[in-house]
Amino acid sequence: MLYDETLAAIVPPDETAMEAAWKRWDSIAKPLRSLGKLEEMVVRLAGIYRTDRVSLGKKALIPMCADNGVVAEGVTQTGQEVTAIVAENFLHEKSSVAIMCRETGTDIFPVDVGMVTDTAIETHKVAYGTKNLRVEPAMTREEAIATIETGIRKVQELKAAGYGIIATGEMGIGNTTTSSAIAAVLLPAEVETVTGKGAGLTSAGLQTKIDVIKEAIAKHQPDPKDPLDVLAKVGGFDIAGLVGVYLGCAANHLPAVVDGFISGVAALVAVRLNPLVQGYLIPSHVSKEPAGHMIMDALRISPLLTCDMCLGEGTGAVAVLPVIELGLSVYTCMSTFDDIEIDAYQPLN
């Protein structure tokens, strides 16, 4: 099974390459470690690529698109028809992230893993939306694995096509509800602490959302020691697809750029399935959603950007790509102390 094979194929990033990258940084004619997280990111990339000669190659964004049966409970401001509209807009540069992709030279590959509407985007639909998690488990364990494998295959396809870095995104009305449910179980944390207003709920709507999540967790008893059980019972197909992207990136030695809250929750599921995935995560921003910082802390990554964003789609992940490229340009192109024949900076105690 591809799922099991992928989990078994993941190894840690290469420490020797990371040490060589730090040595290169420290030889560059500038104050030591003065580019902070930009230096850390290049070193992280060296470990992922298993070489200190770091090159990103082509850039891709994979937005996983799916609908969630829980919207029947009034946990969202908009209806499921919006999922399909935005998903198709990915193809026509009419969505926020599609415009950002155009401006950053990032190719976008939206995938339908469970929308209730058929559209023009690439389709690997497991079902027409998940079940209403307040009433029954969102999906079966088998459906969760099948969706994860879709994400893995997409990464394999893009690597074969020359893509060297994968940004993660999603589209699915109701997915802050599913993400909050997963976060509450896996962190663990009180539902009130990890649940926000999403795309714009009233205070009364937020309370409904919290109540629905609490009821679902109490009814289905997802096992925090079994991330796949949590994903299947209270998650969504879009999240499952992103779990596959993270696992696929780790197994194929590609960096996966974490977007915001929903993308971060998917990363948390992937890391709980195999802790070595953590070494392949590239942070982008910290979401304005209540659990944004909590997810980052749980993943042991620190955001490069703090923009108070909570749009989703992969907007934060795409926004950080030029920042990473700037750091990489300095790493690759700048003169060393030896080149310009001056004494190197020395570490100070």
Rank of each mutant, 00 (worst) to 15 (best):
P63L: 02
V243L: 05
Q221T: 02
V71D: 01
R50G: 01
K23R: 15
Q80M: 13
S179V: 01
A84R: 06
V194M: 09
R272L: 08
L38E: 10
I210S: 00
A216E: 00
T195A: 11
T332A: 14
I182Q: 12
I239C: 06
M296L: 15
F261P: 02
R33M: 00
I28D: 10
E215W: 01
K219F: 04
E341R: 15
A46G: 04
E73K: 06
E40V: 12
P275E: 00
E5T: 09
S335P: 00
S180F: 08
R134P: 00
L276P: 01
Q207L: 06
A291I: 07
V271T: 13
E142C: 00
D118N: 11
V257C: 10
L242N: 12
T176K: 04
I166P: 00
A298I: 11
C310F: 11
Y246A: 05
I210Q: 07
I210K: 06
P13K: 08
F109M: 01
P283D: 04
L201F: 09
L281D: 06
G105Q: 11
A87Y: 07
D67G: 05
A120S: 14
D343P: 08
I166K: 03
S27Y: 01
G169D: 09
V42Y: 01
G114T: 07
V243G: 03
D308K: 13
A66V: 04
R33H: 15
A9I: 01
M41T: 15
I165K: 10
L328G: 10
M18G: 04
V155S: 03
A317Q: 08
A127V: 04
W22A: 10
H293D: 14
G172R: 08
I121C: 07
G169S: 08
A138N: 05
V11W: 05
I282L: 15
N68M: 08
M139T: 06
M294V: 03
F337W: 14
G314C: 09
A298P: 11
E136L: 04
A98C: 11
A199G: 13
Q207F: 00
D297P: 04
A251T: 06
R141P: 00
D107G: 02
V11D: 12
P275Q: 00
S95F: 01
F337N: 08
M171A: 12
H293A: 14
T168V: 15
L186C: 01
G244E: 06
D223Q: 04
I324V: 15
N175C: 02
V70Y: 10
R153C: 06
Y128W: 10
G74S: 03
V71L: 02
E192G: 03
G164L: 04
Q207S: 07
G114H: 06
H92E: 13
A72K: 13
K288R: 14
L133T: 09
D226R: 03
N68Q: 12
A344S: 15
V330G: 07
D107W: 07
A161N: 13
A256K: 05
V265N: 11
Y49P: 01
N175D: 09
F109L: 01
S263H: 02
